[in-house]
């Protein structure tokens, strides 16, 4: 072997920023994550030109998938124009020359923090979720090594206990976002801090979801057509946020996840959290030819015709 065989002509940065050896590692880990749905696969997690905790996990996955023909949508809290989403999207353009979009239907890759779009994703789309803390057991077991053994034994009793305690103390399950969910009947995952509203969108979905925590160096996946069940008791049904009857003051659309905007008179106004979904409704109302995709929720209710 010669040194030359291991090197190549110098370039300040590679296409897609990550060098090929970093991409190969991510590819290997992503494949294992897909093969064992919900299993947290450790990876080296390279430093990227963004601070840890700012989407570096999602970034590495998207950069690995990136090609010039990719059409990328980046959202934060449901919004395309959120500052960090803008920054990440700009980076993809800068290092990947990709096509940027705000339209869920047009994207090949959707990278998101804290939301899953309201329009259904298709079989050919990848959802990349940024994950701050990949460990659903962290609240009951901060030690990552012990938590790993608990996953190995499918020892989730303490999680159930936490939910039960909430039920007893508060009369309902108080878990807000990142609701622990069982994937393919084996691994409990945190679906990232998406609201409870979004968790059912992972169940038997048409699309592939890759969840990646850059700082914590773990990635996991929910393949298409995979069972994702929020942890619930048989006699206490899973409850999403009570947003089914909220109307967006901008688009006048009702029945989707909203942001609450406190008003000076003490009341609240609501706007659609999925910003581009709202824009499409506004444009359509104004007579523009806009195609709004099929949605998971209809009339404020999850339409779950799947098993």
């Amino acid at each position: 072997m010669k040194l030359q065989e291991l090197t190549k002509p110098w370039a300040a940065f590679n296409y897609g920023f990550l060098d090929e050896s970093a991409k190969r590692e991510l590819r290997r880990r992503i494949l294992k994550a897909i093969a064992i749905p919900g299993c947290q696969v450790p990876y080296a997690s390279r430093e990227v030109p963004m601070a840890r905790g700012w989407g570096t996990g999602g970034l590495q996955v998207t950069l690995t998938l990136l090609k010039p023909a990719s059409v990328v949508k980046v959202i934060d809290q449901g919004a395309d124009d959120s500052v960090n989403a803008s920054s990440i999207r700009k980076f993809f353009g800068r290092v990947g020359g990709v096509v940027e979009t705000e339209d869920t239907g047009k994207a090949t890759i959707v990278q998101s923090r804290h939301r899953i779009p309201e329009e259904k994703l298709r079989e050919d789309q990848v959802l990349v979720l940024q994950v701050p803390n990949p460990e659903p057991l962290r609240p009951v077991q901060p030690d990552i090594s012990i938590a790993r053994d608990m996953h190995g034994d499918a020892d989730y009793g303490q999680l159930w206990l936490v939910l039960y305690e909430q039920l007893v103390k508060s009369g309902r399950i108080m878990q807000g976002a990142e609701y622990p969910s069982l994937v393919n009947g084996r691994y409990v995952i945190t679906p990232s801090p998406i609201p409870r509203w979004d968790v059912p969108k992972l169940n038997q979905a048409d699309h592939l979801t890759i969840l990646s925590a850059g700082r914590e160096k773990r990635l996991y996946a929910v393949p298409p057509y995979t069972k994702v069940e929020p942890l619930v008791f048989d006699d206490v049904p899973y409850r999403v946020e009570d947003h089914h009857d909220k109307t967006c003051y901008r688009s006048n659309v009702t029945g989707y996840f909203v942001n609450e905007l406190p008003q000076e008179d003490g009341s609240s106004a609501y706007e659609l959290s999925d910003s581009h979904f709202g824009i499409k409704h506004i444009r359509k109302a104004e007579g523009e030819p806009v195609e709004i995709g099929d949605t998971w929720y209809k009339n404020g209710r999850m339409t779950d015709d799947r098993a």
Binding site: W54, Q77, S170, R172, I194
Partner: peptide
């Protein structure tokens, strides 16, 4: 990173 908006998670907790 705690400077980043967290209003979706906050909204989710608020509801409960």
């Amino acid at each position: 990173h705690f400077k980043l908006p967290h209003y979706v998670t906050f909204q989710s907790a608020l509801d409960a």
